[in-house]
């Protein structure tokens, strides 16, 4: 190697461009596997929704659309702050980056808090947790239970992705304070941003699928 290698350059790569392209392709490929992962769930959900529509309709009616809508709004805002954060990182504005990361983390945490603390807690008190205390009386009890199985599983897996995302952002925040990012090196922020947007998009599909089936009375 004749030229001096940048400290940000891992040894298997030739130059920063190659490294950057490799990591963003890697992220996209990872997101492809994530899509297939959720895709399996969506497929199962759709099959049963078709089979047991009245039960799924009844189950969906038991969810709180307004809280769900609030959460959707929170996530959309967090996507905005994340995007602004990435922009700040590419421009090398450390303070701004830190601010937006903090905002995104807070929005994410609020989402998870509402999801688990308000919605799940409420469902649990209503005896809607399958396998734990499910006790729904009605014509389609089995189908409603199945709906709640999917509801808890899908929102649970999504919430897990949120928690992972928040942890990643926390690490990035710490790295920002340590001065690890600059206009030369903002790759990790960009990748985390991709992941964060992906998790948001999954929710954009989950919300209508779970909350907005049929009419709410």
């Amino acid at each position: 190697m004749s030229e001096v290698r940048s400290a940000a350059l891992a040894e298997q790569f030739e130059d920063l461009d190659q490294q950057h392209e490799a990591s963003s392709l890697g992220m996209w490929v990872f997101l492809a596997t994530e899509i297939m992962f959720f895709g399996g769930l969506f497929a199962g959900y759709s099959v049963y929704r078709g089979l047991y529509f009245p039960g799924f309709d009844a189950g969906s009616a038991l969810l709180n659309v307004k809280v769900g809508a609030l959460n959707t709004a929170l996530l959309l805002c967090s996507s905005l702050t994340m995007a602004l954060g990435v922009r700040a990182a590419t421009l090398g504005k450390r303070r701004e980056l830190a601010t937006f990361l903090v905002l995104t983390i807070l929005l994410g945490l609020t989402f998870v808090g509402i999801k688990l603390g308000v919605e799940w807690h409420h469902d649990y008190l209503e005896h809607l947790a399958p396998g734990i205390n499910f006790a729904y009386e009605g014509p389609n009890a089995r189908a409603v239970e199945l709906f709640f199985v999917f509801y808890f599983f899908m929102t649970g897996v999504h919430a897990l992705h949120m928690v992972v995302g928040v942890s990643i952002l926390a690490v990035l925040l710490w790295m920002t304070f340590r001065g690890r990012f600059g206009p030369e090196r903002y790759n990790p922020v960009e990748m985390a941003g991709l992941y964060w947007h992906f998790v948001d998009i999954i929710w954009i599909f989950l919300y209508p699928l779970l909350y907005l089936i049929g009419a709410h009375h």
Binding site: T33, M36, F37, F38, G40, G131, E145, L146, V149
Partner: peptide, 30 residues
């Protein structure tokens, strides 16, 4: 990349059904 995640989710559903006895695949449970 594209196939394995589907197996992963399927096995998770099996584990879920086995643990909580909720009817995802067992017709006796719907």
């Amino acid at each position: 990349i594209l196939g394995t995640p589907v197996l992963a989710i399927t096995l998770l559903l099996v584990a879920l059904e086995r643990t909580f006895h909720v009817g995802i695949f067992d017709p006796a449970l719907g």
